[in-house]
Amino acid sequence: MNNKVKVLFVALALGAGFFIPSLLKHEPSADVDLTDYCMLSQQVCEQQGVKMKVDAPRVTPLTPITVEVFWPESEAPNLNISLQGKEMNMGVVKYQLEMIKPDVYQGEIILPVCAEDSMTWYGTVSNGDSDIKAAVRMTAR
């Protein structure tokens, strides 16, 4: 077989191996049902006995907001929050909330800027033993 044809086949195989997985990958975030999530706002949201809220009336990009979580009988020194975008894939952002008194955790989160005017971030709040589903709606204006 001609060397040029061999090189062409190798290039095609490498290209296919690089691009096909991303083309076939199903984007799970578009299918997420947010009714299962505790939507964070200034109003207390409760899920499985865990209460959560934020201190801001509106969540905007690059603006720190304080998240407060009341998790009864949790002995973890901190909670982990993991969030990802629903409308746009921007990776996963992770934060920690520190215990400020027994069963009460607090910390600041700052959500990144995205190209859309609004975006929903969804994920989990975890004490290491169990996870609570949480989401927050961010608007640019």
Score class of each variant (00 low, 15 high):
C114S: 09
D55A: 08
Q84L: 04
S118G: 12
K101A: 15
E27T: 14
Y95S: 06
S126W: 02
W71M: 06
V32W: 05
G107P: 01
A76P: 05
L24T: 12
M119V: 01
T66S: 15
I132P: 00
L14G: 00
L24D: 11
L83P: 07
P28I: 11
F18V: 11
K53G: 04
S126K: 02
W121I: 04
G15R: 10
F18I: 12
N78E: 10
M119E: 03
S41E: 10
N89G: 10
R58P: 03
E116H: 13
V50W: 03
F70T: 04
Q96L: 01
L8W: 07
Q48W: 09
D33T: 14
E98L: 02
N89H: 10
G85V: 08
L40T: 14
Q84C: 05
G49H: 08
P28V: 11
C114P: 07
I109N: 10
K25A: 02
I65S: 06
V7Y: 06
T124F: 11
I65N: 04
M99V: 05
S130H: 07
Q48E: 15
G15N: 14
M1D: 11
V59N: 14
G85F: 06
L24M: 15
D103M: 12
G49S: 08
M52Y: 13
Q84N: 07
L23V: 10
P64L: 01
D36R: 15
R141H: 05
N127M: 02
I132K: 01
K51A: 15
A134W: 06
D129S: 13
S22L: 06
R141A: 05
E98H: 03
S41G: 12
K86T: 05
F9P: 00
K133I: 00
A16E: 01
K86E: 07
M1C: 09
I109V: 15
S29E: 04
T35D: 14
G107V: 02
M88P: 03
E98Y: 02
V54D: 13
S118D: 14
I100L: 07
E98A: 03
V50T: 09
K6S: 00
N3P: 06
N127K: 00
M1I: 08
A16R: 03
F19E: 05
P102I: 06
N78L: 10
G123M: 08
S41K: 08
T120Y: 10
N127Q: 01
N80D: 13
P64N: 02
F19H: 09
Y105W: 08
A140H: 11
Y37N: 14
P61A: 15
V54W: 08
N80C: 09
H26M: 08
C45M: 10
A16V: 03
L14W: 00
Y37W: 07
M88C: 09
T124C: 12
S126D: 00
N78Q: 13
C114H: 08
K86V: 03
N80E: 14
P28F: 09
I100A: 11
T139V: 05
D33W: 09
T124Y: 14
C45K: 10
T63W: 03
D103P: 04
K6T: 00
